[in-house]
Computed example of a mutant assay.
Amino acid sequence: MKAVALALALLLLTGCASGLRIDTSHPSVGHDSRVQFVIMHYTSADLERSLAILTGNGVSSHYLIGSSPATVYRLVEEDRRAWHAGDSEWNGRTWLNATSIGIELVNPGFVDTPEGRLWYPYSEQQIDNLIVLLRDILTRHGLEPGAVVGHSDIAPQRKVDPGPLFPWQRLAEAGLALWPDAQQVAAAQPGFAAEPPTIAWYQEQLAAFGYRVPRHGEFDEETRSVIAAFQMRFRPERFDGQPDAQTAAMLAVLNAGR
């Protein structure tokens, strides 16, 4: 059967090359976009270096947004696979290059100093243009706000971009990302403080939200990294990876609202 199928496929390809007419008058409604996620990155480089890297034969992304001016560059067509996610997972889907659009923002990332790690902010124009671009992408591909995630979400053991200064809450206010309701978090937090959840609970909740996380109930380094990635996105003022009542309340509220 495999040989027959291969032969038919080759005949079809040969026919197309020789002018075969294909009837397209019966389009199916049983399909959706190959794009399931939009993944946010920073470049850790200036514009010139970012363009050189992203237009070479290694890493790539669909879009690059400069800083000043915040020009939006399309580097890869959306129907093509860009190489920006690597070893990654979200909501059970793995190796997300095939199912995602990658957006890189020109940003140095961070610098380590004697006083600690300093992160570089994004420009207002960058985020303004990003919001317009994201709204267009989500509309065209029929995606919900939960489809927009960070590189640190899909690869928390390897990546920290787009970093703690990326304005997730601003995107959420524009209807383009998820954010926990502050009043609900405040109401839930005392209960988690009085009776802290187990590590197994955190692992189950993080997995339900979308992260790849161990499910063995032990607080190992891998679990700590996932908690830190979640905190960096939703509580960027402190993302040490330590489970606490506020983190638990945010997780519970986000999962209850999905």
Rank of each mutant, 00 (worst) to 15 (best):
R158M: 14
E144M: 09
R235T: 15
S225T: 03
G19H: 05
F37C: 00
N97W: 07
A256C: 15
I227A: 00
P114H: 03
K159N: 11
A256W: 08
L54I: 11
D112V: 15
R212N: 06
E221R: 13
D244S: 12
F230A: 05
E195K: 10
Y120H: 15
L176W: 04
R212P: 00
N107Y: 01
R258H: 10
M40C: 13
A193V: 03
R93G: 05
L254F: 08
L8P: 06
D161N: 14
A186C: 11
I65N: 01
S25C: 03
R224W: 05
W90N: 03
C16S: 04
G191I: 03
L133F: 02
L64T: 04
Q126C: 07
D87V: 12
H41M: 13
I103C: 03
L10T: 11
P236R: 12
G30H: 09
V111I: 10
R238D: 12
V29L: 13
L206R: 01
R140Y: 07
V59K: 12
G15V: 02
R140T: 09
N97L: 09
V38P: 00
E221V: 13
I39Y: 03
W201C: 00
L171Y: 04
L130F: 02
H84G: 15
N57G: 01
E237P: 01
I199Y: 02
P190T: 07
D136G: 07
Y73G: 05
H84K: 05
A228C: 07
P236Q: 12
L10N: 14
A155M: 10
Q125N: 08
P27R: 11
C16V: 15
A45K: 08
G217D: 05
D128Y: 03
T55I: 04
S225A: 15
E115K: 09
R158L: 14
D128L: 04
T14R: 11
